[in-house]
Simulated assay, not measured.
Amino acid sequence: MKNLSRIEVFGYMFLIITFVNSLYFGFTDAALFNEHYAQEDGLVENETALMLLAISILCVYHLFKLWNFKKPLWKAGTLIFAVLFFFAAGEEISWGQRIFGMESGEFFLENNAQGETNLHNLVVGDTKVNKLIFSQLLMIVMVLYLVIVPLLYKKVRWIKNLADTFAVPIVEWRHTIAFIVCTILVSLIPADRKWEVYELAFGIIFFLIFLNPFNRHIFRESSNAHE
C-alpha cells in the first residue's frame, strides 16, 4: 500500500469518527439519532452533501489542471463525473429547498413521496424511484465497481484502456474493505435512519477514491507510466 496523504488520513479519521458517533447515538438514544443526528437537513445529511460536492469540485480541479494535457474523452469522462456528483449533492439537500424556505411546485407535491423538490423521492405508479434506483440498482453497481472491476482492470487490457481513457478511477482494496466494514457497521445500528450514515460513508470513500485511485496516473500530466 502506498503511503497515504494527509488528506486521505483525515478522510479515514473522519470516517472512523462518523461511525463512533453513529454507533454510540444509534445504540444509546435512537430518538436523538433519528430526530437530530440523522434527520432531514441534519448533521449527517449536510455532511453527505458536502462530501459529494467536494468530489465534484475535485473533478473540476482535475479538469482545469490537466485540460491542456488530456484527450477529449478523458475530459468528457471527468466532466460527467463532476456533473453527476454535483447533481447528487443537490439532490441530497433537495437543492436547498428547506435551507432557503422554498415551496415545492405542484408536480413535486403530487408525485414526490416527501413533497420535496428532488428526483430521488419521486413515486412512479406504486414504485419509489429511490428504492428502485438508489437502493437496489445502486447496490448492484457498487458490488461490480468495488469488487469485479478492479479484478478485470488488472487482467483485461481493453477494460483498463477504457477506464483510463474516460478517467474512471479504479478502487484500491482499502476502499473496498472500507465499504464492506461500513456496510456491516451500518447494519448493526438499530435506529431507523441509519442508512443516512451509509450515504455519508459512500461520500467519504468515493472522495478518497477520486483523490488517490489505483490508476492514479490518470490524474497526472503524463499517463504513460503506471505505478
Rank of each mutant, 00 (worst) to 15 (best):
M1A: 09
W67Y: 15
F179R: 02
H226T: 14
N3M: 15
V60M: 08
V181T: 01
L132V: 06
A167N: 15
R157N: 10
F69I: 06
L138H: 12
F202R: 11
N68A: 15
I99V: 08
V124L: 10
I189K: 01
R216Q: 14
K71L: 07
C182F: 01
F100K: 07
L185Q: 06
K71E: 14
A38R: 00
W173V: 08
L32Q: 07
G96H: 06
V83K: 13
N161R: 15
V123S: 07
N34H: 06
L151I: 13
I189P: 03
E116F: 01
H120E: 08
E199N: 04
Y198W: 08
A167H: 12
L109Q: 12
A225K: 11
H226S: 11
N121W: 03
F179P: 00
L208M: 10
L73W: 14
K2C: 13
N212F: 11
L50D: 13
E199T: 03
Q97D: 07
L185N: 05
F14H: 09
F207D: 05
A54C: 02
A49T: 02
R98E: 12
I184P: 12
I99T: 11
S94T: 05
I209N: 03
I218W: 04
M13V: 09
A38N: 02
E47I: 14
A201I: 00
A49F: 06
N130P: 10
L200R: 06
Q136P: 15
F206G: 04
E91T: 00
I16M: 10
S223D: 15
R98L: 08
V124C: 07
M139W: 13
N224Q: 11
A89E: 06
A113Q: 13
H36Y: 14
M13R: 12
A201P: 04
L73P: 09
V143E: 12
N212L: 06
R157K: 15
G203Q: 10
R98N: 13
V197C: 00
Q114V: 02
A191S: 13
F87C: 07
H226G: 09
E172M: 13
F69L: 05
E221L: 05
L144D: 07
S223K: 14
E8I: 05
K160D: 03
W67C: 11
F219L: 04
L4I: 10
Q97R: 01
S56Q: 03
G90E: 09
I80P: 13
G203R: 05
N34F: 02
W195A: 04
R220T: 13
I205D: 05
L109Y: 15
L211V: 00
C59N: 07
E45L: 00
K70H: 03
T78F: 10
P169T: 01
F87Q: 05
N212G: 09
A76D: 10
W95E: 02
V123Q: 06
L73Y: 14
I7T: 12
K131V: 11
A225V: 13
E91W: 05
A225D: 15
T183Y: 12
L84R: 10
L162N: 12
F81N: 05
T78P: 09
L151W: 15
K70E: 02
W74I: 00
R193N: 08
W74G: 01
Q114H: 12
G96Q: 09
V147M: 11
F14L: 14
L66Y: 07
F33E: 11
Q114E: 10
